[in-house]
Design a protein around this nucleic acid. Structure first.
Lengths: 331, 331
DNA sequence: TCGCCCAATGGTATCGATTACACGTCGGAC
DNA sequence: GTCCGACGTGTAATCGATACCATTGGGCGA
C-alpha cells in the first residue's frame, strides 16, 4: 500500500488540499505549512499517484508509439527522437511493436485509446484500407511517420522521397553510369513510387542515353537478392539503386557471393542510412533520412495538435547524399 | 469528453454496476440486459477508461523498460522480446531510453514509480554505486537484464558470459592460433571480467603455449580501433577476441584500413550476435546471446514476482558460437 | 398458500489527487 | 471601532470504474 496524499497531510498536520497546493507549487501556502509538508513528503518518501492525477486532470502524459518492427534498424533512431522529445515535455512513451502484423497495429490503436494516451504516433510502413478507415476517424491526436493517408486528413512526417530518388540517380549518373537498375520495395507503399519517380526525373534531366530497369523487391534483405538474377543477365558496369539500405545490403551480399566487385564493377546505392550502412565493406553510399528528427518532429506535432493548432498536410524533411565506398565511376 | 460507463448505462437503461458486470464478463447478468448493454457499447463506441480502472484496481498493466541506448543494436531485440511477452499478458511497455546517462536512468526509475507501473526492467550496461543503492531498495517488482547487483538481492537475467568467453577462445585455439588479443570493455562491468575469465580458462585448458594480451576498449566501435595500435606491433597471424560485436566491427574496420586481411591474416571474433554481424564482409564470427529470450524472460520474471513468488539469484541463459567468415586457420 | 432462496439489479463507497468554494483571521484604512 | 480585502486553510465534489451490500421479484418445495 503506497503512501497517499492523506498520509502526508496527517503527518504534516494539514489537509490534503494544502499538500496538493504544495505539490502544484501554488503560492497560497504559508512558509510554515510548506516546510512541514515538504518534510513529511521526504520522510515518507511520498510519490503522488500519476494514476489518480490522470483521472482528475484527464491527461495521462503518455504517448503511444506504434512501430512496424523495432528490430528493423530503421526504427530505433525514430524511437530515440520521439523519446527525447517526449521526455523534454514530461511525457512517457508507450511502445507498441506491431511485429509486421497489420491486425496487431489496429489492436494497439484500440488499446492505446483505452489507456487514454494524449496522442499516438504511427511509424508503420504499409497502411491497408482498414488502417485508413480506422486512422482517419481516430478520436485522439495522431501523427503518421513515414507514411501518409490520401487526402492528407492526418498530419504526417515524411522524408523527401522523390528528391532522394533524384539525388541517388544523379549521383550514379555523374559517375558515368548509363545502365541503372532500380530494386524497388513493395508497390503498395507510397514512398516506393516516389523514389522511383525521382530516379526517372533525374534520368530525364540528364538528357543522355540512359537505360533504367525496375525489379520489385520486398524492402528487406531478401529483396536485394534480386541482384543475383540481374547479375546473371547484365555485364558490368551498371549501377543498382536500391529502395532502401537493407535491400542494398542484400544486393551487395549477392554480388559478393558471385565474385562481382563493388564498386569496381557494379555500384550500389541505398536509402535510409541505417547504422549498418557505415559498416559494410565497402561502406554503403546512401541517401540519409534524418530519422531522429522525424521522431522528434512527430512528438512536437502531437503537442501542437493538443494545443488546438490545426496541423494539416505533410511535413517533409530533407534528405542528403552520403557517399561511401559502394559507388564508383563506371569503367 | 469521452464516453463514460454512465453514458452507456443510461443508453442501455441499466445502472453502471450492470454495465461494469458486462465488462467483466460476469455471469450475473440477464441475457436481455447483456444485449442492451453490448448494443449501447457498440453504438457509442465506448471504451472503458484504463485510468479509472487502474485507480480502482491498483494495477496499471504497464511495465517500465529502461534501456541504456535503444540505438545500440544490442537492445532492440531485448525490447522486442519484452514487448511480446508483455503483450501476451495484456500489459504495455513504457520505454525509457536513458541515452547512456546514469542520472537519467535514476530519474526514470522515479518517474516510473509515480506512474505506478506494475514492474520495472532495467537493461543497462554499467551500474554505478548510486544505482545499487537505489535499486536494492526499489519498492516495486524489479528485474535486471545483462547486469547484476552484488549479493543477488535483485533478480537478474544474464547470459553465460564466462562460458561465452571460453567458447570464443576455444574456437580460435582450435584454429591453431597461439597469440590471442582480447579487446575488453570498460572494467566496471561485470560481464567484461567474466568474459575475460572465460578466455583465460580456455587457454589454461588448452595446455599449449599460448600468449594472451589484454587491451581495454570502451565496448563501442571506437574501442575496436585499438586494433590499429595492436596491428602496428604484432605480425600476423593472431586472433582478436573482442568484448562484443561493436568492438569487433571497429577492429575489422581498422584492419581493413591497414590492408590486413580478415581472416587470412588475422581472425576476429565478437560477442552478442547483433543483426549487423551477419552483414559485414566477411561475416562476423561471434558468440550469440539470445537477446529476445532475455527480454521475454525478464517480463515473465516480473509476472512471477507479482504473483508473490520469491525469485532470487540470477537466471543465466546459454550462449552459442556462430561461425561466419571472420575467423580462419592460423597460417 | 406460505416462506425461502437465488438470480438480477441498483445504490453507493472507494481508489488518490485536484480544485471550487467557503470560512476564519488578521491588518489596514476610514 | 467598523468594514473590507487578502491570505491561508479546510470541506467536499469530482474524475470513471469496481465491488460490496441491499433490494426486488420469481420460482419452487413443503
Amino acid at each position: 500500500m503506497p503512501i497517499t496524499i492523506t498520509d502526508v497531510a496527517a503527518r504534516a498536520g494539514v489537509s490534503s488540499a494544502t499538500v496538493s497546493r504544495v505539490l502544484q507549487g501554488s503560492p497560497r501556502v504559508s512558509r510554515a505549512a510548506l516546510e512541514r509538508v515538504q518534510a513529511a513528503i521526504a520522510e515518507l518518501e511520498y510519490r503522488p499517484s500519476g494514476v489518480a492525477r490522470s483521472l482528475r486532470s484527464q491527461q495521462t502524459g503518455t504517448l503511444g508509439l506504434i512501430v512496424t518492427n523495432i528490430t528493423n534498424p530503421f526504427y530505433p533512431e525514430i524511437v530515440r527522437g520521439a523519446e527525447d522529445a517526449a521526455q523534454r515535455m514530461g511525457a512517457s512513451i508507450i511502445l507498441c511493436n506491431a511485429a509486421e502484423d497489420p491486425e496487431r497495429e489496429i489492436a494497439y490503436l484500440d488499446l492505446l485509446l483505452e489507456r487514454r494516451v494524449d496522442g499516438v504516433i504511427v511509424a508503420a510502413g504499409g497502411l491497408t484500407q482498414r488502417h485508413e478507415d480506422f486512422l482517419s476517424a481516430f478520436p485522439s491526436p495522431l501523427v503518421l511517420v513515414n507514411a501518409a493517408l490520401p487526402g492528407g486528413q492526418v498530419p504526417a512526417v515524411l522524408s523527401d522521397d522523390e528528391g532522394g530518388g533524384r539525388a541517388a540517380a544523379a549521383h550514379v549518373l555523374e559517375l558515368g553510369h548509363t545502365r541503372l537498375v532500380h530494386i524497388s520495395g513493395p508497390a503498395v507503399r507510397e514512398a516506393v513510387s516516389l523514389r522511383l519517380d525521382g530516379v526517372r526525373a533525374a534520368i530525364a534531366a540528364a538528357d543522355a542515353d540512359v537505360t533504367l530497369e525496375v525489379v520489385e523487391g520486398d524492402g528487406y534483405l531478401a529483396g536485394g537478392l534480386a541482384a543475383r538474377e540481374v547479375a546473371g543477365r547484365l555485364r558490368p558496369p551498371y549501377a543498382i539503386i536500391a529502395h532502401n539500405d537493407l535491400t542494398a545490403v542484400g544486393a551487395m551480399h549477392a554480388l559478393f557471393d558471385l565474385g562481382i566487385r563493388v564498386p569496381d564493377e557494379v555500384s550500389v546505392i541505398g536509402f535510409d542510412d541505417i547504422a549498418l550502412a557505415a559498416f559494410t565493406n565497402p561502406g554503403l553510399t546512401t541517401i540519409a533520412q534524418d530519422k531522429y528528427a522525424m521522431g522528434h518532429l512527430a512528438v512536437e506535432t502531437i503537442a501542437r495538435l493538443r494545443s488546438g493548432e490545426a496541423v494539416k498536410g505533410d511535413q517533409v524533411l530533407p534528405v542528403r547524399l552520403i557517399v561511401r565506398g559502394s559507388t564508383g565511376p563506371a569503367h
